[in-house]
Design a protein around this nucleic acid. Structure first.
Lengths: 221, 221
DNA sequence: GACTTTACTGACGCGGTGTCAGCGAATCAA
DNA sequence: TTGATTCGCTGACACCGCGTCAGTAAAGTC
């Protein structure tokens, strides 16, 4: 009997954990990732604040848990977007657009990732929460590498020395562009730059760099 | 007499203000932009905490003041870097490298900008501190636009529809790449990606997109 | 020399985080 | 069944950092 009830309790515990993250997402969505209070999360989860600290050591661990969900959610979109396109070149475009749509439709998740992207981890220890997030992120890059290799085979993308390096570069480009579009949007509109145009151009410019070489003899060195 | 002493006092006030920002930079550099306490800034400036609030309405205004200094500092590097190169194409490369060197040599300033870049301003009101920072930033983009136009004239850069749009895109690319390099550096090294290589590649890929068109007939559409 | 204006401070309230002793209910041992 | 034990959970507390405000002393004004 001991084993059975232990297992049942473990499951309940996992549910509690998920329920708390659910609550956190609701609060984050309502009040923003920055000014969210553990108090609010607890109330939303109909639980005492102290309990939240039993499941998550501190506030940033709870935030990291949301980051993991965000990355998992994005990985799904990423994979389906890549699968929907035929040529590698189009897969890469689809991935970029998927990230932008993701940022637009799940702003909470994008904010979570953005915060994580800007945060310098102090430890890389295996098993640490930060590590878990990094690993999921790496997994996403691998999918992009697959699309790049696909494109190199089907001739829609030029031969790349190091596809992983390119994948990470593209990710950093895209993330940077979305971030600028989101935070400086209204200001840019004033200057006559439509947010959508910026994002489109961010993809277009990057794709030019991936297109197959034709005659590069007069490219500046 | 009233006028003279007023002027003198205004100057002293300005000096105080600058001194406080100096102190803030010292503290930020030591403890990081995030976990800096007004207490520490005040002590560093040998002043009471309440006085700091006379000069800066709140913590984030003080941080914005540091952002302005950061942007001004970068604008200098930006301008000299662009001036040192001949062709427009090389100016753009120089600008990118200047930003990376800046991030490396003045990590405090880069962190300040990074935070500002990730922060969604709530007001665009003229005269607000945020506005001041945005305007300096816009000024920097204009310098980049100049370099792009230079390149379009000397034939080292292809004809661009909207140079300002390109300038902003390049900025967002570069900022994104540096941010990833800085925050994910150690993790990427583990995966066999040298930080320097990532930054080099970030510039190279973007520059490919700016190179003059030659024969584009078989570029994927 | 009386007054006002100005630079500055000490002390406070408030809101938020993280901790801890302890309570009641479920589980176990007899 | 009942006493002991584990377990999930909470209320209350200490602490910290921000922003505020009444108040002081010095400089300036008349």
């Amino acid at each position: 009997m001991a084993n059975l009830s232990r297992q049942r309790r473990d499951e309940e515990k996992e549910q509690r954990r998920e329920a708390i993250i659910d609550a956190a997402e609701v609060v984050f969505a309502a009040h923003g990732f920055e000014h969210c209070k553990m108090e609010d999360v607890a109330r939303q989860a109909r639980v005492s604040r102290a309990l939240v600290y039993l499941y998550f050591g501190n506030k940033s661990e709870l935030q990291l848990a949301v980051c993991v969900r965000a990355l998992l959610s994005f990985r799904e979109r990423h994979a389906t977007a890549a699968a929907a396109a035929d040529r590698g070149y189009d897969k890469i475009i689809a991935i970029g657009r998927a990230y932008m749509r993701f940022a637009n439709e799940q702003p909470l998740y994008f904010a979570a990732l953005s915060r994580f992207e800007a945060h310098r981890p102090e430890t890389l220890a295996l098993g640490s929460s930060e590590r878990a997030v990094l690993d999921v992120g790496y997994n996403i890059h691998e999918l992009t590498v697959g699309a790049l290799q696909h494109g190199m085979r089907d001739g829609s993308i030029r031969q790349l020395d190091d596809p992983l390096l390119v994948a990470i570069t593209l990710w950093s480009y895209t993330h940077g562009a979305i971030q600028v579009a989101q935070t400086k949007g209204p200001f840019l509109e004033e200057a006559g730059i439509a947010t959508g145009a910026l994002l489109d151009h961010a993809i277009e410019l990057a794709m030019r760099g991936l297109a197959p070489d034709t005659d590069q003899s007069d490219r500046p060195t």
